[in-house]
Computed example of a mutant assay.
Amino acid sequence: MTRVVVVGGVAGGMSCAARARRLDESAEIIVLERGRYVSFANCGLPYYVGGEIVEADRLLVQTPERLRAALNLDVRTGHEVVALDAAAREVVVRTSAGEERIGYDALVLSPGAVAARPPIEGLDSLRVQTLRTVEDATGLRERVEAGARRAMVLGAGFIGLEAAEALARQGLATSVVECAPQVLPPLEAEHAWLVQEELTRLDIAVHTGTAARSIVTGPDQDTVVLDDGTRLAADVIVLAAGVRPDTAVFEAAGVVCEQGALVVDEHGRTSLDGVWAVGDATVSVDPVTGVRRPV
């Protein structure tokens, strides 16, 4: 029996596991997810913070139990892959019970990304958090319901602006800081201007062309100091300054990477035999032209 091990759940890993089952009904398919939830609606997280989604359970798409019943998948949450031994075809997994080694015939990597952490003094403040997981969303909403009055969002990309809108709708005085000269930097300026107009209509203060220099922790609030000297108080600070591939474990094991992204060919194969990769932590390299593009 072929054993397929998938590292990482949510969209990339679970889609791959489901497809593998359809291709081989007899394979043993194990999904290793370090978090508590293997399948949830990422795009719904800000709407839970904003109160439009009332119950956190509505964010969950699938559970390990339902995936086993429907597709015979062995989904293991709370299992973090901390090493890869490609020669032995094993991964080392850390769980609450300790470490174990799991062998594979085929390994699929879908590690996703982690929040980028700019060099901001004081970024380790307990009032700073991200918005990438169900736990992040529930924690942020708890802070809102506990009486937070002022919010600061560092980064005006898609997640940052959705978080800002959610917090403003909950009645918090909300500010957004973006080092680029406009919100949503990938957009054309005339389109970004329309977005900024909507932010203004929602009473969200927008600071573009500047960045957070430091975060000064206080007993009741933090103070975010910007490069232009502006000082802004905040009960809640959302870090939304982009992401980076979460691939250090696999790069250390010999998988070729570029700027942290796992390099794959047109079939999703990495540089290691028997190891594939999918999702937003990969980059494809055309074998003829050498052109690189995200997968």
Rank of each mutant, 00 (worst) to 15 (best):
R132W: 05
E178P: 06
V75W: 02
A253V: 05
S214V: 02
A189H: 11
P46A: 09
E178H: 03
A166I: 07
A70S: 11
E33D: 05
C16H: 00
D286W: 01
V153D: 05
V291Y: 09
D74E: 14
S125G: 03
G274C: 06
L123T: 08
V176F: 07
S110E: 12
A69Y: 09
E28V: 05
R169A: 02
T223E: 15
V177W: 06
W276F: 15
E266Q: 15
Y48C: 05
T174L: 10
V4N: 01
I102A: 09
G9Y: 01
A234F: 00
V134D: 00
L59K: 12
I204F: 15
V75Q: 09
L154S: 00
L239P: 06
D24Y: 00
S96Q: 10
V216Q: 13
P294K: 09
T217M: 12
V10K: 00
V291L: 09
T77E: 00
L59Y: 13
E100V: 15
W276V: 01
A189G: 04
V144Y: 01
V114I: 15
L59Q: 06
G103H: 07
T208S: 07
G268E: 12
L202C: 15
R143D: 10
G155C: 05
E65N: 06
R76K: 10
R22N: 09
V4L: 06
T77V: 12
R21K: 05
E197I: 04
F250T: 04
V177Q: 01
T230A: 14
G13D: 05
V128S: 04
T77S: 04
S271P: 03
G218T: 04
G8Q: 07
D222M: 12
D280Y: 03
L126V: 03
A56N: 00
P287Q: 12
R169K: 10
T247S: 15
E33A: 03
D286L: 00
R68S: 02
G139D: 11
